[in-house]
Structures are given as structure tokens and as C-alpha cells.
Design a protein around this nucleic acid. Sequence first.
RNA 1: GGCCCCAUCGUCUAGGUAGGCCUAGGACACCGGGUUUUCAACCCGGCAACAGGGGUUCGAAUCCCCUUGGGGCUACCA
Length: 545
Amino acid sequence: MVVARFAPSPTGYLHVGGARTALFNWLWARRMGGKFILRIEDTDQKRNTPTAIEQVIADLRWLGIEWDEGPEVGGPNGPYLQSERRDIYDKYVKQLLDEKKAYYCFDTADELKAMRREAEKQKKSFIYRRPEDFPDDGDAQNKRGQGCPVTVRFAVGRDEPIVVADMVRGEVKFAAGEIGDFIIQKSDGFPTYNFACVVDDKLMGVTHVLRGQEHLMNTPGQQELWKALGFGELLKYAHMSVTVSDTGGKLSKRERPKALRKAIKSIEDIDLEKLAKAGDIAVEEINSFLKGKTTPDVPAIDAMTKYLGVHLPEINIVDFFNSGYLPETMVNFLALLGWNPGGDREIMSLEELVECFDLSRLTKANSLFDRDKLLAFNTEHIRRVGKERLLGHFKDYLKAVESPVIGADDETLERIIEICAGARTLADIERKSRFLFLADERIEYDEKAVKKVLLKNDGLAVLAIVRDKLEAMEQFTVDNIEGMLRSLAQEKQVGLGKVAQPLRVAICGTTISPPIFDSVQMLGKEKTLRRIDNTVRTVKARAQN
RNA sequence: GGCCCCAUCGUCUAGGUAGGCCUAGGACACCGGGUUUUCAACCCGGCAACAGGGGUUCGAAUCCCCUUGGGGCUACCA
């Protein structure tokens, strides 16, 4: 049976790269009728962030990726948090030590740094110099007593080249002696990633590992460890292409802070105190951030971004959710990053993806994360998800962004979705419909729109006529409103826009709204009239100044 | 620096594993036109690529080599 896994480290939110890895492993497991495991690799105590696990779990579920074994669902091979498996790793470290396949080391960080510098000077790879005689437990005990760091290194075989049979790249050869002895147990007693991952993959029965190409250089070492531990049949590896950013290089979560830094610096007379308050951090922290020394945490970044009203590139899965993307879109788009079903197929549901997913169609070359195309995919998925699901997604979105639209009942929301057909994101729908739920006096007027539509071409005069006709209307229906506006336009021998636009700006403050007849009808007669009056008053007052 | 991976339109890619079906197909973006009450959507049309150089072959986008270019890794991070 195929057993695949996703093994994130809880250092932050689930980002695009991680989500893709998770998705591919999940697709492969589902396609083969196998099992998908979620394992948390929290072996670095310094980097773990407390809420990360919950976040990652929430994001995976939002995408529709469910696991058969792992946190919250349990399973026979638990625990699924590596920090809770220390005794297991200790046992295997001891085995390797006893068999002289691993050895203690006492180097300090500075000593190691010096060795690396030396290697670089000689234009060679840094290969740790293995001692002639391995220190024994007593030596380790002594060194520890003296306050020396004690680590354990794996003695990598040096006689034969190491060959990794990769399902994407074929046989990748590493010359004998090229892979140095790497640390498998840190001085704090925790295993390193390269060790814990090998042990767990065996114990959890993993058969396939799909991961980014950035792991390719870890594979020979892990494979040798696997053999040294006597784990038997090797894992099947597939190293997928890296997703690169349009700014060049691997798509990284550091892009958001970077973009924010740039945005802050571009603002001339910025009030750092206020900004700090918005982000709930100290001013010194911002200064240090601007110098590139430190990075505030995600909530602070998000809060400051919101405060400044700037748009940062989405990197984490929640970012896409907050920008109004559908999980259907993300899953579809992610799947096409380094894979494709062949031919012309592009828009697919999760179910369709499972049906045709195939490792032989994994792409070798890196792919760029194209936000324009993502938007096009979202437009298409909004069109095709179906009413019920879209309504659900929309409500989730409204809750997350704390929109005033949240107060509407389902019937109204469905109507809104309907009249906003063609929207590219849920944010578009929200933006267009929020005027319906704002208090009349909270309408913000777009200067350009006011100038162009109301102050020119008799805008206000037309608006006055429209107002009277609306007031006189007995049945405030879409048809009546449409009929009135159309005949008025005809009467005046002008395009519909000439009469519709002033009305549009009057009720929502901008020239962007759902179709005008629906907008007016949904707003209702009373509010429409009041807004027209407010608008006239405001605009006249402003024109005088 | 060392090791490793990769290379078709601006971008994602089909085609490459069985060389002729490719005067290279699709999608996004872009440009032009249409529809139109705004934005968006929608419809029609257009632009646009086998990185370069050597081979192998009757024949190469497809196989081999080199160059160039891009990317990854190079931690007591994962």
C-alpha cells in the first residue's frame, strides 16, 4: 500500500510551497487508495511557534486535505509530534553508536565555522574530518561535564558513490566522499531533521516521499542512514521542481515582510509611533525591522499592513483566504505547479485531480508562481463552484475580514452573489456590496467620481430628476427602476450611463457597484432617497469650498 | 567556492521516455475590435517560443556533448 506523508515544521503558517507538497502527497495517496499521514516535525525548540500547528491544520482542512493519521485524528503509529518521540530516536542513536556507525563530537560552533571557512578557501566541499578512534560514552560524559557541547554524527559510507533513484530526475549520483558526516543528535538531545525523518518514515510505514527539490541534497545522507539502520527496502523519492517568485528565487514567506518594509520606506512622512501602535509592537522594533535586522511576527505584519492600507503579495494560505480566493482555486492552481495532466486540461476539481494524478507527469523545471493566472483561475472557480458552496465560502470570508455585509441573511447574500456574477474574488463581491450595509452617513465619496459624474454634464440636475421619479414610484421593483431610468435616458436623448452614473455615485460613493437597478432596489426606496439628499448636500458644500 | 538540478511564446505548459503527425497546440498576460448602466465578466481577432554551438541521423523541439543562463543545497533549520 502507498503511504505518503506531509511533515511540516511548526514555524509559522502553511505557505504556498508547503501546501503544494501536502497536496501532492495527498493526491498520490488518494489516487493509489493509500494512506496519508500528517506528522509535525517540531525538533527545533527555538523555532517552534505555539499556534502554528493549529494554523497549519486549519489551512489544510480549508484546502480539503484530510489525513488518515496524525494530530487530532490519531492512528496506530503515534505520537505524531516528533517532540514526543524522543525516546524512540534515542534508541536508534544508541544503536548506531554501539555499531560504530555514529560517533560523538565536541566541536563548538566557532570551531565548525573555522573548518568551513578553511574548506572554502581551498575550494573544496566541507567534509567533517572523522576521528580515527570514536570517543566512547565516558568521553562524552566527561566533555558534557566540562560544559562542552556534545553531538552525534552519522559516519557516512565513503567507499562507494551514492545513487538516489529519483522518480522525477532519474538516477542522481553523488561521488564517494562527497557527503559529509552530518549531525543526527544535537547537543540539546533532540534529533536533527535528517535523522528523525528517516526513523519516522520507517516506523510509520511510509513508502513514497514527494518533496521539493531543495531536499535533493539531503536524500543521499538519509538514504545511507536508512541502510545503516537496517530498514530494508528504500523509500521511493520524487523531488519536485521549486516554485519561484516573480521577484526571482524560491518563493519565500520572507517576501511579505520585505514588501512591507519597502512600503513603509516609500511613505514620506510616516508616523512610526502610530504604526507601532497598530502593529502592537515597539518603535525600536520597527526601526530594527526597517534596517533589515529583525522581522516582526505575522500578526504584527498583518496589522501594520492593514493600517497602512497596502497590499502585500499573498504567500501563506491564509493570505489567499483573506484576499478572497477559493480553496478550489488554490488546490487546482497548486496542483499545476510542477505537474499537469497532459493536453489542455487546466480547470479541475479536487476529485478530478485525484482521478488523474500521476507521478510520471511531474515537471522537472522550476515554475513561477503567476498571480495573474491564479486570479483567472479564481474567476473561473467562482463561476463554477455552485451557489451553495460559494455562499459558504463567502460567509467564511465575511467573517474573517469583519465585513459589515456579515449581517445579511442568506437570501440577501445569494442575491448579492448573483448580481455580482463575473467577480474575480470574494473581496470583489464584498467591496461592491458593502455600501448596502453601511450607515448612510458613512458613505465615502470618491473625489474623481464626484467630479466626473456629478459636477460635470448636469450630473446633479439629472440626479434631482431621478430622485423625484424614484420618490413617486409606487412599486419599488427592479423592473420599474430600470424602466424609469431607460425612458428618462431616451427622453433626454442620452445614454443610460448619463442617468445611471449620478445615481450610482449618490448611493455608493463610487462608480463601482453591482448593476444599478439591482443596487437601488436592494438598498430600498427610503435609503436611496436619503443618500441622494446626503450626496447633494455634501457635494454642494464641497463645491463651495 | 563546492555539490546537485533544470532549459519550448512575457508566464504556466502540451509535444520529448517509441526522432518524421510540429509551417510547434492550449491557458494566463498583452494588443486590437465587439457587447455594455460602472467595475468585472463575456465574444471575436492578433502578437509571441524550441537559449547558443557542435554532433548522431535521410530527418531533431525530441538523442549525445559543450557553452551560456536560471535555480537549489552548502546549519547542532526543517
